[in-house]
């Protein structure tokens, strides 16, 4: 087993603690889902993270994966936020993202991990539509279904400019096996076929990111680094409040207009051809 697979990432927990000032462990929920309401800027923000729990009662979800308990619990904590703020200003929700994958297991499929992850998606999207600014902060891996469940419904996505921060549909080793390429070939391919890349700077070219936060190494959480990230989160929250509650902004950036022009063109045609009644 490679070091990449055996080492449990601590980034999610570290950034969660640094930003919220709390450990996020709840009395009732699983130890793998962190939750805290903490002050950011001049308001209270809900922070959420999924972290490894070697004691998890589901063995396929002990390394930080989004499994059944994690996904349903995320859904609960997000919906709780909506309830808390009914009739008040919806507080921002910050998803600290460091998730290596969804949980791959027989029980997970049987019991319906697809529904659990859908519940998390549903909750985040509902919060966004209810006016909660939802911000995803990528501090490590944001992989595949795990990212769909925890972060991809955000109004704004921020990422640290760090080689360990990556978004992808499939882990590198697995993708290499499936596509019958070496990991090196996969990296080379990512330079020409941008959506295939594992590099966060190439991901930024797709126009989906709000911002890459430069000058912050994901593993060194000095006071300056944390202060900078807090400042960027506050700015993203205020930008969100000034904008819409859907995801249309992801097709509006200059980068998106360039790389996702096929998306824009197919939309244009469908809108033109759609019958009036």
């Amino acid at each position: 087993m490679s070091a990449e697979q055996s080492d449990l990432s601590v980034r999610g927990r570290q950034w969660f603690e640094a930003l919220s000032g709390e450990n996020g462990v709840t009395a009732s929920g699983p130890a793998s889902v962190l939750k805290a309401d903490a002050v950011l800027g001049d308001e209270t923000v809900r922070f959420l993270a999924v972290v490894p729990d070697p004691e998890s009662r589901f063995p396929r979800a002990r390394k930080g994966e989004v499994g059944l308990e994690q996904a349903w619990t995320l859904a609960k904590y997000v919906r709780e936020t909506i309830e808390l703020d009914k009739g008040a200003t919806p507080r921002p929700i910050v998803a600290v993202v460091d998730v290596p994958s969804q949980a791959y297991g027989r029980r997970e499929e049987l019991i319906g991990i697809y529904l659990a992850c859908a519940a998390a998606v549903d909750a985040y999207a509902t919060a966004r539509m209810a006016g909660h600014p939802v911000i995803a902060l990528l501090v490590g891996k944001a992989m595949s279904g795990a990212f769909l469940a925890h972060g991809y419904q955000a109004n704004r996505i921020l990422a640290l400019d760090d080689p360990g921060v990556m978004v992808h549909a499939m882990g590198k080793a697995a993708a290499a096996r499936v596509t019958k390429r070496s990991v090196e070939d996969l990296d080379a391919l990512g330079e020409t076929v941008v959506p295939m890349s594992y590099d966060i700077r190439n991901y930024a070219k797709l126009g989906l990111l709000h911002k890459v936060i430069k000058g912050v190494a994901a593993d060194s959480l000095g006071a300056d680094a944390v202060a900078l990230v807090r400042k960027e989160l506050v700015a993203a929250i205020s930008d969100t409040r000034a904008g819409g509650r859907d995801l249309s902004i992801r097709l509006e950036s200059d980068a998106a207009k360039k790389v996702r022009h096929a998306s824009i063109e197919v939309r244009k045609r469908l809108i033109e051809q759609w019958p009036d009644a």
């Binding site: 992808h168 549909a169 499939m170 499936v178 959506p195 295939m196 991901y203 797709l206 992801r250």
Partner: peptide, 11 residues
């Protein structure tokens, strides 16, 4: 997700 379009498929 279509693996050849990885991140755009996921998005």
């Amino acid at each position: 997700v279509r693996l050849q379009e990885a991140n755009l498929g996921l998005a």
